[in-house]
Design a protein around this nucleic acid. Sequence first.
DNA 1: TTAAATTACGTAAACGTTTACGTAATTTAA
DNA 2: TTAAATTACGTAAACGTTTACGTAATTTAA
Lengths: 336, 336
Amino acid sequence: MSYTIKDVAKKANVSIATVSRILNGQGGYSEKTKYKVLKVIEELGYQPNAVARGLINKRTHTIGVLFPKLSSSLVTDLLDGIEKAANDNGSSVIVCHTESNGEKTMKYLQLLIEKRVDGIIFASEILKDEYYQFVTKTRMPMILLSTESYAYPVPFVKVNDFHAAYAAAKHLIDKGHTRIGMISGNKDDIIAGIPRIDGFKKALTDHNIPFGTENIVFSRGFTFPDGVEGLKRLIKQFPDATAIFAASDEMAIGALSAAYQIGIKVPDEISVIGYDNLNLAEMSIPPLTTVEQPLVKMGEAAAEMLFSILETGETPESRIMPHKIIERMSVKERKK
Amino acid sequence: MSYTIKDVAKKANVSIATVSRILNGQGGYSEKTKYKVLKVIEELGYQPNAVARGLINKRTHTIGVLFPKLSSSLVTDLLDGIEKAANDNGSSVIVCHTESNGEKTMKYLQLLIEKRVDGIIFASEILKDEYYQFVTKTRMPMILLSTESYAYPVPFVKVNDFHAAYAAAKHLIDKGHTRIGMISGNKDDIIAGIPRIDGFKKALTDHNIPFGTENIVFSRGFTFPDGVEGLKRLIKQFPDATAIFAASDEMAIGALSAAYQIGIKVPDEISVIGYDNLNLAEMSIPPLTTVEQPLVKMGEAAAEMLFSILETGETPESRIMPHKIIERMSVKERKK
DNA sequence: TTAAATTACGTAAACGTTTACGTAATTTAA
DNA sequence: TTAAATTACGTAAACGTTTACGTAATTTAA
């Protein structure tokens, strides 16, 4: 089909070894031959075959990324960062969409291993036993992104959910609120669910605000409808609340919508703080105050950690990325 | 490192040809050997090497996708559809983020060609001469997604922007509006800019509504800030407007935000219709009426067209996907 | 029971590179 | 000018598969 190194070699009257050496700039050839070969390459429009290279070099310059879903700003920003770092390191990224489905995940893992990607980034999801065993057996490098494993020594990059949630609640407290509710995500989610709940709880009790069952409402996930639902339930069980911490921006935006429907003014009657700082957050009405996760940077960090493993062979340290309160318009100072 | 077909062959006391035949289910072996070989494969945890397969079969079961940016719902939904269809066809997808940068785009194209992907999907961007020539020379199949080329015969999948914009404007007219403004995108964008402007204009004149320079405002792109800006300018030059067509959902949401800031009530004082039907659209306040592009399906269609080329070798017909008005709360019937 | 047909394999070449190991050609040193 | 050192190549094997072409073993037909 297309030309190979042999065609180039023949046309330039040199051996394929010479062509290869020139292509890889390894030295061992004269300037004259170099010029001659480069010219033939130009004429033929020869393109090296990365598949053949991958076979012999045992490096495909491709990494695989597994996401539970694709169409979410959160994942998208992570991917953006990963792609950027990968590109800077001369690699491509294959995206896999697991739908949080165990079977599908295993199939993807298998696929990535067969394709001999250089490494895997496993994002935003619980690392099951089965997954870990499978990829460890092949000794393929793996990084956890926006998730972590308590059971296995897999390096991860994440913010500290406990601290970030604490910061969110404290921000509300600092603004003078004392009757604060939380719309939490899934309370069985040990990565994104429990730590945020615990951080919230701790902030309240540290500031002598009693925490009871009426302060919190649990959802299935972290989605917009969960937020709509959540606000309605929270208002019912805790009508005096003056501020709310939603465990994700999507939920916070859902809460904003529900408040609007019911006729509660944000932030005048109730303040809302989110979590993530998605693109959405600055587009809402009112613009959402939230705690930022540096998603793009997290993606970059994960990819860079992978490349550092590939270079040095050493397991890098996990990275806790800094979170930050982004003040916009959805939280109002409360005068006593 | 990991085991090869040779290790399996040796351990099972057969030739590598036999192992290969069993792996590919081609027949030419007894049930007994099959069982024996499969058992060895199981024991060794052998994983076939897709790189070697790709070299000999000249099929990598990987496709490349080029996007101008990653972190946008629009792109994300397209990618979602592509990934789905690719997975159903046993292929993976490599994502490339061009940033609408010509040099970067060429580098990515080169990379994908060197990696011998089976085909390329070029999304949401103008296909430059240079790009077209480069990939055509290699005879690599290519599909245009959410864009099209007037100059070259590259199959595409898209909605009809002219018709969709016409439908949006007509929806406003049907709701009794006669003083209608448009916040358009880039007026030099021949794919997403001009046709939407023309469709809008045609709808007005077809319904005997005079169209003048005060009816429209032009932006750089199609982003949220463009929408914020756009509404402010539009209101200034066309204060009597009762309805607005924004050329993208992001712009529409921007318009909503700006209206909120200024203190104009949507939809009571002004109606807004968007374009795209992103996830955002149902999360806004009020929920956004918009014209839907079936983005996920478009992504799927593009990938499927690619696979059909790979199977049949024939160039498929381009596909115009249906658009649809999604009525939510941002447009209000106007009584005379 | 024997010949013909079929099945179940094995051998070796090929895919397009890289690279270890030679060796002829050139350059440098004496 | 000649020997030693260096440079500029070429040959061939290797990466891990698939597959065309044989052929030995088995099955079927007579």
